[in-house]
Computed example of a mutant assay.
Amino acid sequence: MLTLIKDAEVYAPHYLGKKDVLFGGEKIIAIEENITLHHDTFINLVDGNGFILVPGFVDALVHFIGGGGEAGFASRTPEMHLTDATLNGITTVVGALGTDDISRTHADLVAKAKGLKQEGLNAFCHTGSYHLPIKTLTDSISKDIMFIDEVIGVGEVAIADHRGRQITAQQLAEVTAESRTAGLLSGKRGTVSIHVGSGDTQLTLLHEVAQTTELPLDMFYPTHMNRNSELLMAGIEFCIAGGTIDFTTSTTDYDLAHGELAAAEALAYCLEKGVADSQLTMSSDGHASLPIYDAHNNLIGFEVGQESSLLHAFQQAVLEFNVPLEQALMAITQNPAHILGLAKGQIKVAGDADIVLLRKEDLSVNSVWSNGQVMVLDRQIVQKGFFS
């Protein structure tokens, strides 16, 4: 079947104007001002008038097999289901382990990625976790990245956090070098996802690796950079030096009241300070544990990250903080895809048909296609997950 979306305002994520978009199979076939097909027997026609057509969202950090456990075994968070992503415009997810790499395993992570792919989503994951020496599915980072299609890099490695292993620059450099080489050998980027805690060392370790080795700074992808204003300023310096930073959209009222910035606010602030829009991203940290610690790192509360927060942060950036639509879209489509080395996040001829229709008035999700397969149509679930 072919699908033709007529008269939508297309953001690719850059604005293309009002266009018709034709796709079939998994690919976009044409983007034109007016596409007329003379035989409509095998055509799904969608009226895009009044809608904004954008790339499917790329969520660069999701704990899709669950995470956590900082409040004991009962606090291990549940896994993600397909519609947690698709109802919120997300067509690509990247999974990772976090604090718990004992009861959570890479076998589970890769199996879940394969399951989500079977259900129609684009799903990838990282090898490793918060801790070094690194744990892998096979016996090495190199084999995981080179021979497991879903594995695209390493992460999330924890720095500046009391839950991490307090790693050295040499340890991080060795992991990064292996990831980079394995990526080169397999046509992947081998990005190293970095969990940044609230410690005073901030991003010092990343700068040290870049300054004392041949490894480029843009191998690192630090997240949670909106944790506090001091870390955000360190993030701006990291961007000036050539890096990319990520803001976490899942948060708690307690954290926002105690210094954390909303991801949308952090995005707007960095753009105002002159950071290039290509260096900023947002991710949900969906289904991660959100432990709430006091000033002495005592656990005083616990919540769970939500994939829906990515859509809400995008809406907030545009509607509340006046971030231009193109730049807000870049942060959740093209930019994370680029830093992770994924051919996603753009509307273009011969590109993957990962497409979202948003309502103009409130930027809510109306319809979603992943690799040309309709997942949500007119706000109704079409493709259900096995358990969703």
Score class of each variant (00 low, 15 high):
residue 278 S to C: 10
residue 121 L to T: 01
residue 63 H to W: 01
residue 162 H to C: 07
residue 55 P to Y: 05
residue 384 K to F: 08
residue 75 S to I: 06
residue 357 L to Q: 10
residue 149 D to P: 04
residue 118 Q to W: 02
residue 143 K to H: 10
residue 215 L to V: 02
residue 141 I to S: 07
residue 29 I to S: 10
residue 300 I to A: 07
residue 70 E to G: 06
residue 348 K to F: 04
residue 62 V to R: 01
residue 97 L to G: 04
residue 26 E to I: 10
residue 289 S to K: 04
residue 196 V to C: 07
residue 1 M to A: 15
residue 276 A to Y: 13
residue 325 L to P: 11
residue 232 L to K: 05
residue 198 S to K: 14
residue 217 L to N: 08
residue 38 H to T: 11
residue 186 S to V: 05
residue 320 E to C: 00
residue 130 Y to M: 01
residue 34 N to I: 04
residue 112 K to C: 00
residue 168 T to N: 08
residue 101 D to L: 03
residue 358 L to R: 10
residue 285 D to M: 12
residue 196 V to G: 02
residue 373 Q to F: 00
residue 323 V to C: 11
residue 142 S to I: 01
residue 12 A to W: 08
residue 262 A to E: 13
residue 59 D to E: 06
residue 368 V to E: 05
residue 163 R to D: 06
residue 314 F to K: 09
residue 99 T to M: 02
residue 257 A to Q: 12
residue 168 T to I: 11
residue 188 K to F: 01
residue 276 A to P: 14
residue 80 M to Y: 05
residue 183 G to R: 02
residue 204 T to L: 01
residue 52 I to N: 13
residue 314 F to C: 12
residue 318 V to M: 10
residue 386 F to N: 06
residue 181 T to V: 11
residue 64 F to M: 00
residue 342 L to D: 06
residue 50 G to L: 03
residue 362 D to I: 05
residue 253 D to P: 07
residue 1 M to P: 12
residue 203 L to T: 09
residue 152 I to C: 01
residue 148 I to D: 01
residue 387 F to Q: 13
residue 14 H to Q: 15
residue 278 S to R: 13
residue 259 G to Y: 12
residue 220 F to H: 10
residue 106 H to S: 03
residue 20 D to M: 04
residue 152 I to L: 01
residue 197 G to W: 00
residue 215 L to T: 00
residue 97 L to V: 03
residue 15 Y to V: 06
residue 146 M to H: 06
residue 343 A to N: 15
residue 195 H to K: 06
residue 376 V to E: 08
residue 220 F to M: 08
residue 297 N to A: 09
residue 10 V to I: 14
residue 368 V to S: 04
residue 362 D to T: 05
residue 332 I to N: 06
residue 359 R to I: 08
residue 108 D to L: 08
residue 128 G to Y: 09
residue 383 Q to V: 02
residue 367 S to F: 12
residue 45 L to G: 00
residue 366 N to H: 12
residue 381 I to K: 09
residue 269 Y to W: 13
residue 193 S to P: 03
residue 244 T to I: 15
